[in-house]
Design a protein around this nucleic acid. Structure first.
Lengths: 117, 117
DNA sequence: CTGCTCGTACGATAGCCATCGTAGTACGGC
DNA sequence: GCCGTACTACGATGGCTATCGTACGAGCAG
């Protein structure tokens, strides 16, 4: 084998051409998911584990939200041992919708500053 | 009175500060509503009537979608006789989320070109 | 005033979705 | 091999939402 399988389990991601704007906007229209995306954008090139996020929901619900983001093509997920690394698909999103992600992130930051103090 | 009531019926709109990013993104995550917004952006400074749009749904459903857009703060609606004029709230959106609307519209146009031929 | 057109309101329905709890699987350390 | 940790799968549930049909209200043309 070429790489002897990185870490066995692989998750299904949509190809770049399959990413739909409606799906991305819908994925980002949930406050919890927007929070995840903002943290990923701020923090991590390499990716953050699911458990890094301190979300006010159960793990089941977390899994659900991460799955929505992945299936919409917003994030990429890879197993790393027992953990799972999440990273923004910035390249794909920028290629498909130039400037969109940055505008949305800026808008979210602006609103957070305006409302959250 | 100052203006003697423009045309009687007035619709409730959220104030600029009440517009929430999640709401805007959710409103735009429906293909039908995105289509409406795109036509409004392309065509009309003054506004377009509801009946101008040739949507593949009943009038009830149209009313519903226009209402969602209005309550999210994306469009402004004003009665003009029996018709109702719809216009984008570009000023408010640009003030709150600079560049967001243009990015989204560009993304939608790009996807339409990519998929619709 | 009588109709006509444009849009609304209301009720019904079916589908999606955010949330939870419980039970289970994969991986790494001992 | 066994256990703990990290995440998943599945089923249930309550709420939202897109859709429709029918009945209604508001303005305009006669």
């Amino acid at each position: 084998m070429t790489t002897a399988v990185p870490s066995a389990r692989v998750l299904a991601h949509p190809a770049r051409e399959e990413i739909r704007l409606e799906g991305v906007l819908h994925a980002l229209s949930d406050p919890l998911r927007m929070l995840i995306v903002r943290e990923l954008a701020a923090g991590a090139e390499a990716g953050l584990t699911c458990s890094h996020f301190d979300l006010p929901v159960t793990k089941s619900t977390s899994t659900h939200h991460f799955r929505v983001l992945r299936e919409a093509g917003v994030i990429q997920q890879n197993y790393r041992g027992t953990a799972k690394l999440n990273a923004l698909r910035r390249d794909d999103l920028d290629a498909l919708f130039p400037g969109l992600l940055d505008s949305v992130l800026a808008a979210a930051a602006r609103q957070a500053e305006r409302l959250g103090g």
